[in-house]
Amino acid sequence: MTTAAHRARPGFVWAAPAVLYFAALGILPVGGVVYLSFTRWNGLGDPQWIGTANWSALAGDPEIGGSIGRTVLLTVVSWLLQTPLALLIGVWAAGPQRNRAVLSTLFFLPLLLSSAAIALMFVSLLDPNFGLAADFGRYLGAPDGNFLGDPDKALYVIASVIAWQFVPFHTLLYQSATRQIPASLYEAAAIDGATGVRQFFAITLPQLRNTIVASSVLMLVGSLTYFEMILLTTKGGPGTSTRVLPLHMYLKGFDGFEMGYASALAVLLVLVGTLLSVVVVRLTGYHRMASDREGA
């Protein structure tokens, strides 16, 4: 290694600001939450050290198992709902026709609305007596328009609202990735006699593999943050039918003011998040720091 090459390598100092910043506002707070999880604190006065009482209370919390299960279910359903939709629409919208470009502008609109706006809009739309739910409910298995209030449907309705918000973004990912697929591939396939559906499975899908991974990662990473949407639509109800783990933690802390116990839940949430990150990193190979090409 020449000195010149060495000098051109950026030192740790380039990464230091980001690292320090993240340590102060990302890692330090996690330490704080761990501390609070061993205290009793209602937000007033000073936190009181109570040892592992909050942690043993986790086992006796009737909502804990359910809320973890609902979190996983919501993540899986969201992925199953959004990925095929976004993939197919993205591929279709990548077509050359002008009208498709106009239409894809329309597809993009939901992304411009904030989650708060979308939540308020759907609460209104899904009003069983005066919203669209009243008119279209019977085609969707709820003749009385009871969607958000039906314990068996509410979580799926939430998943659909989330899909409404995020499918456009993923559609865009697929649309732009599809445009990058060289035409020569399709021409070669056409010569071999492969058409329509076979081309899709033989060329388009494999070519989009990396995009599928990238889009899935974003969905997974986002899945723990959906709670705002639920908070503003059902607040976890009816009963606890849509109470996912992040919301459970939030309600314990900010509705019931059991900050100590909420912190124990928060630590659990951080652990789940970290675990998820590890899985994602393993699956995608994001942990490789340099390009494959560099080694060659």
């Binding site: 993240f22 340590a23 949430l269 942990h287």
Partner: peptide
Amino acid sequence: SFSVFLLGLAVPAQAVIVPIYLI
């Protein structure tokens, strides 16, 4: 440092809202 960021990928912000508030 890269590993730290990777681990932080899916940590939800609301979990640490109280300490953030104190900071």
